[in-house]
Design a protein around this nucleic acid. Structure first.
Lengths: 194, 194
DNA sequence: CGCGACGTTGATTTGCCTCAACGATTGTGG
DNA sequence: CCACAATCGTTGAGGCAAATCAACGTCGCG
């Protein structure tokens, strides 16, 4: 098959489970493609998250807004990553989280009914998403430990080691939001560090 | 079949997926039973987590120890809950987390090779653990949001609403460790609250 | 060109921690 | 069954990490 927009997605899946050509074709027939622009809101707090999303290009962020209007970033989603408000997706209830695009992005979208159908037809997908979910748990466990036990300076270092590419591309204020400090404080921290 | 020690486990699984009697029997033949005493260490940092664990009775805690020797509790596991250091389990690498028993406890244990075997024989288990993992992600997302956006007082209230039973049973210092404050500070907080 | 987003810097405040001391309770070995 | 140690919660004095508020320079973009 010719090079096409979903290649990255198929590659990620094939890295974990084997799919026949028919299975791939069936899967592709059930997913959607979408472009969104920088700063465009993709999931809004209060709406129901009807799909799970894979980032083909660009970058999204998953975040909550607290009662004072401040953003707290839960996850960045560069190409090759999945995003979603899990609670909203699983229970099909209003989301507490928001998703928007940091840069112009291309997405692969799988609606919940479609994915549930895919699960029953192709067991390999059940396995793939189990593995994906387990890895996500491992990442969240680690992140939580860092937040509970490390001071801001060390949380920043950890972020740099874990996502060296993102450091270069993201505005500082977003990194501050991710590691859980104010932009002002991060700025002061970096200054005296050097 | 007569009432037996794994009933709670089968009940939890059956709530999500349907299993035939043979499948149940096969599953039971692959799991282990273990009792551990209060304060007994079950998984030690540095060891490889070879199994996933279900709590039948009692209560475990999953925690890390920081460089100053302080505990940070990631999760409590009362009866009906699963625990594990996911990263260590998935990659079969040394654990960064510890698990021990808060009370005398009974456990159902599934070794990784056994579970991998179960997955290939009974697809329903693949589904069950996918669902379980997805729910865990939802919980971790919520927890992280709380830690990033709420002050200690509100994190405590949230904990009370989420785990009313645990509040009664657990020493205050463990709740402090879970919500991410010192025992002294929690004590003062509760005093002036009333 | 002018506006809005971003990073910076300084002064001040505060939420939470540290250290230390003290009762109350629990549990344990003699 | 008592004595002693260990664990836990409490309280107070003092300190620090990080937040808040405000002002300013710079840049990229419409």
């Amino acid at each position: 098959m010719a090079q096409m927009k979903f290649d990255l997605l198929l590659e990620k899946i094939s890295a974990q489970v084997k799919l026949s050509e028919e299975e791939k074709a069936f899967f592709l027939s059930r997913i959607q493609y979408k472009k969104i622009k920088r700063k465009q809101l993709y999931l809004q707090e209060g709406d129901v998250s009807r799909a799970i999303t894979f980032v083909l290009s660009g970058c999204l962020k998953l975040y909550s807004i607290d009662r004072n209007g401040f953003e707290h970033i839960l996850q960045f989603a560069p190409p090759g990553w999945w995003v979603g408000d899990m609670k909203s997706y699983i229970n099909q209830e209003p989301a507490l989280l928001n998703i928007d695009a940091i840069y112009d992005s291309e997405l692969a979208i799988i609606l919940k009914p479609e994915l549930d159908d895919i699960y029953s037809r192709i067991p390999a997908f059940e396995r793939f998403f189990r593995i994906l979910a387990e890895n996500a748990i491992a990442a969240y466990q680690q992140r939580l430990i860092n937040n509970l036990s490390l001071p801001a300076k060390d949380r920043y270092s950890t972020f740099c080691e874990l996502y060296p590419t993102l450091i270069m591309q993201l505005p500082q204020k977003m990194i501050a939001s991710y590691i859980g400090v104010t932009p002002e404080f991060l700025s002061k921290m970096l200054k005296q560090q050097a």
